[in-house]
Amino acid sequence: MIALTGDIGGTRIKLAVVRDGQIIARQIEPALADQRWPDRLPALAATWRALCHEANIELATVAGLGVGFPSLVDAARGRILDEWGKFPGCAGFDFGAWARDTLGLPLALDNDARAALIGEWRQGAGRGSNDVVMVTLGTGIGVGVVMQGRVLRGAHGQAGTLGGHLTVRYGGRPCICGNVGCAEAEASTAVLRELAALRPEFATSALARETELDYASVFQLAEAGDACALALRDHSLGVWSATIVNLIHAYDPERVIVGGGIMRSSAHILPALQHYVNTHAHTAWGRVQLVAGELGDDAALLGGAWLVNEKNFPNASA
């Protein structure tokens, strides 16, 4: 089966051609997430066509378009349901109609974190388990869930995906979702500079001189003993750990996959998270295993191909 796939992120957009579970052509582009979504699409269509040309693939042989999008979506109708400060004009957009009219392809649309979970579940760190939660640490905190071998979506498409918006601090920081004290508002790259600026040590910290403040800098400078970086590291590890315990209590996984760009520091992150989970998660049956994602940027692209196959479009059996 051949599928065109996309992982639409707030910083980068990844596009690919996937054949029989293997990526045979790919392109990464800047997201330009301040642009209107309808205005962004012609360039993406051109890239998908160019990738098909590169891979010597005819569009007529493609089973469908599988896309992970950073929002709540109506997977059945191929519609984006709301906006999260990215791609104005995406809410209510009929993505399925666009795919048919522009590329002549049926669309399989899902949340981006759920698409990444599916990729890891089928071909990465979740192989062999039918009860998996994936937490993606990045600009935000994305979550996807598989329970008893079924991808969890819920009646309105939001089951499992709002794990980053579980309340971890009552009366805490306001979040873009409208809640307060969300994990994403308390420890994500999107709010990292704000969090750092609140620390009394920030003015004299090397972090204050970083033009692009990210968790790679935080973990590196924490190792060097920077007081502000140490405080941010420990605070963030606490938020992520508490979030994972909440997810374990809610969804009863046997394995939790932790992915995202932050996991370049997995040697520091995973042991701390595992220790907290072992100490605080109520799992009478045994211990939940925490593992790092294996597929990196490929996870949602491969998950997109599975979404196309799940839809059983006419060319999906080809």
Rank of each mutant, 00 (worst) to 15 (best):
1 M>H: 12
1 M>W: 01
3 A>R: 00
4 L>C: 12
4 L>P: 06
5 T>R: 01
6 G>R: 03
7 D>Q: 04
8 I>W: 06
16 A>P: 14
17 V>C: 14
20 D>L: 02
20 D>W: 00
26 R>F: 00
27 Q>E: 15
29 E>W: 00
29 E>H: 02
31 A>K: 09
34 D>S: 13
34 D>H: 12
35 Q>D: 07
37 W>G: 11
44 L>G: 10
48 W>I: 07
51 L>F: 07
52 C>P: 09
57 I>W: 10
59 L>Y: 06
62 V>C: 05
63 A>I: 05
72 L>V: 15
72 L>P: 11
74 D>P: 09
85 G>Y: 01
86 K>L: 15
88 P>E: 11
92 G>V: 09
94 D>G: 08
94 D>K: 05
95 F>D: 12
96 G>A: 15
101 D>E: 15
103 L>S: 05
103 L>M: 04
105 L>N: 04
105 L>I: 02
106 P>W: 03
112 D>E: 05
112 D>M: 02
113 A>K: 04
119 G>W: 01
121 W>P: 06
124 G>P: 05
124 G>T: 05
125 A>G: 04
125 A>W: 00
127 R>P: 02
129 S>L: 02
130 N>V: 00
130 N>A: 07
137 L>G: 14
141 I>S: 09
143 V>D: 01
143 V>S: 02
145 V>G: 03
146 V>R: 03
153 R>W: 01
154 G>W: 01
155 A>I: 04
159 A>Y: 01
160 G>T: 10
163 G>Y: 01
166 L>Y: 02
167 T>D: 06
172 G>N: 14
176 I>C: 05
177 C>Q: 07
178 G>L: 14
182 C>W: 02
182 C>L: 09
184 E>S: 11
185 A>I: 08
186 E>I: 05
186 E>R: 05
190 A>E: 14
190 A>L: 12
192 L>H: 04
193 R>H: 10
193 R>Y: 10
195 L>Q: 07
198 L>A: 15
199 R>P: 03
203 A>Q: 14
206 A>G: 15
208 A>E: 09
209 R>D: 15
210 E>P: 03
210 E>R: 13
210 E>T: 09
212 E>Y: 04
214 D>Q: 05
216 A>M: 10
217 S>Q: 11
220 Q>N: 14
222 A>I: 02
224 A>F: 13
226 D>H: 08
233 R>N: 02
235 H>D: 13
236 S>A: 15
237 L>S: 03
239 V>T: 05
241 S>I: 01
242 A>E: 06
243 T>K: 03
248 I>P: 04
248 I>N: 09
249 H>V: 08
250 A>E: 04
253 P>Y: 12
255 R>I: 13
261 G>S: 12
264 R>M: 07
266 S>Q: 14
267 A>G: 15
269 I>P: 04
272 A>L: 01
272 A>Q: 09
273 L>S: 06
274 Q>N: 09
277 V>W: 06
278 N>F: 01
279 T>P: 03
286 G>K: 04
286 G>H: 11
289 Q>H: 12
295 L>V: 08
304 G>E: 09
304 G>F: 00
306 W>Q: 14
308 V>G: 07
310 E>M: 07
315 N>T: 05
